[in-house]
């Protein structure tokens, strides 16, 4: 109760920031969440994780950013745990496992959350994810027809509290050592960087619209100023004003770096 009152008193009508900090305490990694306000970060309130993450807060992440004060928290991995949470009123909901996907016991599921968003037409909060399958190599060769285990996309609706399959062939996250899994969200659309497995020369901004549940691609210039190899550039996706910013961190001479900002209005 005390925490709720503090949040409302301090942060109402102010610019506030949410900082998810990971740190190492007593040889264990823990995640902490703070609300900050004030020009110099002088007002700081620590938030307790919702109950599903209170026992193990090693690697809690926020999917995208808060939408209408609501956060989507998750812990990656096999059968990842996903919780939708409104800290101001201390309400949370554990997202159920997929009802679409049923596999034999020796097949595992790896889900990759790609976006959390708001569908203003249906007044609904949604999560989109790609489901991938893994099994041991021997079983894959001998017993399982591979075609049954193509990755698939599905979408969760908070209103119906269930997952359903999306018949889309979207591009998943672009993976490279210097490109982190980042997604941004604005006005009902979430965006991530993707590269198709069949067309590996091109990197795209993949934009998924939670209202019509369709996606579109925007190509990204691979070679920037100095014929820079995209794989060697640290690339980050963020919102800046009302635009999507693609920030590329490039090493110049003598250990000096530049950060180039490309923007695209949405």
């Amino acid at each position: 109760m005390y925490r709720k009152r503090v949040i409302s008193d301090i942060f109402y009508d102010y610019d506030t920031y949410l900082l998810l900090k990971k740190t190492r305490l007593n040889f264990e990694i823990h995640s902490f969440l703070y609300l900050f306000s004030g020009e110099r970060f002088d007002d700081k309130v620590g938030l307790e994780w919702p109950p599903p993450f209170q026992g193990d807060d090693r690697d809690v992440k926020i999917l995208g950013s808060g939408i209408n004060g609501i956060l989507c928290l998750y812990v990656d991995g096999f059968n990842s745990e996903v919780v939708v949470w409104n800290p101001a009123i201390e309400e949370f909901k554990v997202i159920p496992p997929s009802s679409v996907v049923s596999v034999p016991p020796h097949v595992g599921i790896v889900d990759q959350l790609h976006g959390f968003g708001y569908d203003c037409i249906r007044d609904d909060y949604k999560i989109v994810r790609c489901v991938d399958f893994h099994t041991n190599l021997l079983e894959m060769i001998i017993t399982l027809p591979k075609v049954l285990y193509d990755p698939l996309w599905e979408i969760y609706s908070l209103k119906s509290n269930s997952w359903r399959k999306l018949d889309l062939d979207m591009t998943t996250f672009y993976r490279s050592p210097v490109c982190h899994l980042e997604q941004v969200y604005k006005n009902g659309v979430c965006h991530w960087l993707g590269r198709s497995e069949t067309d590996t020369d091109n990197v795209y901004l993949v934009s998924f619209d939670f209202g019509n549940e369709a996606f579109f691609l925007t190509s990204i210039p691979l070679t920037m100023d100095d014929n820079i190899n995209f794989d060697l550039v640290g690339t980050h996706l963020m919102m800046l004003n009302e635009s999507i910013a693609l920030i590329s961190n490039v090493m110049q001479k003598h250990l000096l770096f530049t950060y180039q900002f490309l923007v695209k209005s949405v």
Partner: peptide, 22 residues
């Protein structure tokens, strides 16, 4: 003035709301 961060941290603007998710 905030120390002991991991690089996999996140920061975002945030506005609280009283919208129920139940």
């Amino acid at each position: 003035g905030i120390k002991r961060m991991f690089s996999r941290s996140q920061i975002a603007s945030y506005k609280e709301s009283l919208i129920s998710i139940a």
